[in-house]
């Protein structure tokens, strides 16, 4: 799952630079001081062993799945390393979505209109959010939510995009279970397809059931899942470059 990187030649497009260099370049380009601070905190080198990587479990609850049509409702973060989660550093923010909160997502998140009306706009907590991510590698379950939503949100608010690597615990499960659909014979015997959803994946590692659809609890759930995945399938010496996307 590693990405191939070219040389560090100065004429290389920013998108093709290895992450640590790309962060330095993006820090230079950033005009918003919150974003600048985020990049300046840096990014670990791809050959850093997992045991030395500062991670942060990250999860958003959103009004839908399309970052261009839907909005962030809440953000949960929990800092960790592969051998420790620190609950004391966990944070949770409710933010006011720019688009109407659909009835369906209300029932899923358990967040009401009253909660939302009192919530600040993301721009008001952006410094805190970026600070909690700074210098850490975000860990998410399904990479097509947090990074794109944060990117769009920032584009709208500060006119700048955001880039960072993530470790996707769902992608790891997908890689571990390439053939999840049972064949016709297995189906005949009643075998169910292997689910790589967060609760189902956790179950395979003996992790407890946590109630879903709360950003902080899901962030914690992904963090624990990565700890378990590393112990079962990788090693503390595995370079982060093998896992991040």
């Amino acid at each position: 799952m590693s990405e191939e990187h070219d040389s560090k030649a100065t004429d290389t497009p920013v998108e093709e630079l290895p992450w640590p260099e790309r962060f330095r370049e993006l820090a230079r380009q950033a005009t918003d001081k919150r974003l600048k601070a985020f990049y300046e905190a840096g990014c670990v080198a791809p050959d850093t062993p997992l045991k030395e990587v500062p991670f942060v479990g990250l999860d958003f609850e959103t009004t839908g799945l399309d970052p261009n049509k839907h909005s962030i409702v809440s953000i949960g973060v929990v800092p960790f390393t592969i051998d420790r989660v620190h609950l004391g550093g966990s944070r949770h923010w409710l933010v006011k979505p720019q688009l109407p909160l659909h009835q369906t997502s209300i029932t899923i998140h358990g967040i009401t209109h009253t909660d939302i009306n009192k919530a600040p706009d993301l721009s008001e907590v952006l410094d805190e959010v970026l600070e909690s991510l700074a210098g850490r590698i975000p860990v998410v379950h399904y990479r097509s939510i947090e990074r794109p939503f944060l990117n769009v949100a920032l584009k709208w608010r500060i006119g700048q995009e955001i880039r960072f690597p993530v470790v996707d615990t769902m992608a790891i499960e997908s890689y571990l279970h390439p053939r999840r659909q049972p064949n016709w014979w297995q189906r005949l015997k009643g075998q169910q397809p292997i689910s790589i959803r967060l609760p189902d994946s956790r179950l395979r590692y003996g992790l407890p059931h946590y109630p879903p659809h709360n950003a902080l609890v899901d962030a914690l759930a992904s963090a624990e899942l990565l700890m378990a995945q590393v112990q079962h399938h990788f090693s503390p010496e595995t370079p982060i470059g093998d896992l991040w996307l």
Binding site: D83, R84, V85, L87, G88, G206, M227, A228, Q231, H232
Partner: peptide, 13 residues
């Protein structure tokens, strides 16, 4: 709860 740290151990470790 605020002070809790969490660790995961594989069977046999």
């Amino acid at each position: 709860v605020s002070g809790i740290e969490i660790a995961y151990f594989r069977a046999g470790s």
